[in-house]
Amino acid sequence: MTSSGHTGEERRAWYRLTPADRAALRECGYERTWLPGEILALEGSPPSGMYVILAGWVKITARNYRGDDAPLAARGPGEIVGELSPISELARSATITALDNVRTLVVPRDRLVTLLTTHPHIAQELLRTTGIRLHQSDRLRLDSGGSDFVQRLAAVLLELSVQYSPEWANVGEVNLNVTHDDLAGYARVSRRTLLRGLEELRRLKVVATARHRVTILDADLLRELAAGSYPSDT
């Protein structure tokens, strides 16, 4: 899985930047707060700027061929989002929505483009972030395509855990702020199929569920299930 070879600081671009780089971004931008459900950037809108998440979580979604908002990723503190459109000068390819109270550093497009020419290390880290996310996206597509759904769901939850908490292997629990509809979208199954899979994972005491939340209780067993190893006593 993606967690190998990456520490938390390596995975989140803001923490990989030098103090001078972070100071330069702060000088070019401004802070703004967002309430749960507020949209930071709308798919198809002009590339106004990029966002550094300082606190809280956002959800990245895009319209699929049916016209539904399909979840792509969740991003938290230390992540930089919405950076590709200002660089490419193309319309937004996804919508960014606050999951809870979110505080961001907003860097307007014109200032960002100028800054990247004078601070090449920022450009390098944004490129590295893009590479990491492409890898995550590839993993989610692969992990959601297996024939055994419990294994597929475990693999998707494992990958989302890495996105939510890069150091997740060293903590007791990981809380994923994700709805059942979003999780069904990640796993590419119906809501009914998802609920059956979650019921089995709850029975195995791998996860606990609540409104808009899935809590990973047993990281080791989740890894085993994702690898296709089912507990023998079940």
Rank of each mutant, 00 (worst) to 15 (best):
T114G: 12
V113M: 06
H121I: 07
L115G: 09
E125Y: 11
T129V: 08
E89N: 09
L126G: 06
E89M: 05
R92P: 02
I122D: 01
L127A: 15
S88C: 02
I87H: 02
I87G: 01
R92S: 04
D100G: 09
L84K: 06
T118D: 11
T95V: 07
E125A: 05
V102W: 00
S93Y: 04
L112M: 12
A123Y: 08
E89D: 07
R92D: 01
T129W: 04
S85T: 03
I132H: 14
T118E: 14
P108T: 09
L127E: 10
V107D: 11
H121Q: 13
S93R: 12
T97W: 03
L99P: 02
P108K: 01
R111G: 15
L127C: 10
A123M: 13
L90M: 06
R133V: 09
I122Y: 03
T95P: 07
T129M: 13
N101G: 14
L105T: 01
A91Y: 06
R111M: 06
T104S: 07
R109K: 14
R128I: 08
V107I: 14
S93V: 09
T129Q: 12
Q124M: 13
D110K: 11
T114W: 05
V113Q: 06
T130C: 12
N101D: 13
T114A: 15
T114E: 15
N101L: 12
I96G: 04
L105F: 07
V106H: 01
A98M: 05
S88K: 01
L90Q: 08
T97C: 07
S85K: 05
T117W: 10
P108E: 00
L105C: 06
E89W: 05
T117F: 12
L112G: 05
R103D: 08
D110S: 02
V113I: 15
E125C: 00
R92N: 10
T118M: 12
V113A: 04
A98I: 02
I132E: 13
A123G: 14
T117M: 11
I96H: 07
H119A: 12
T129N: 09
A123K: 10
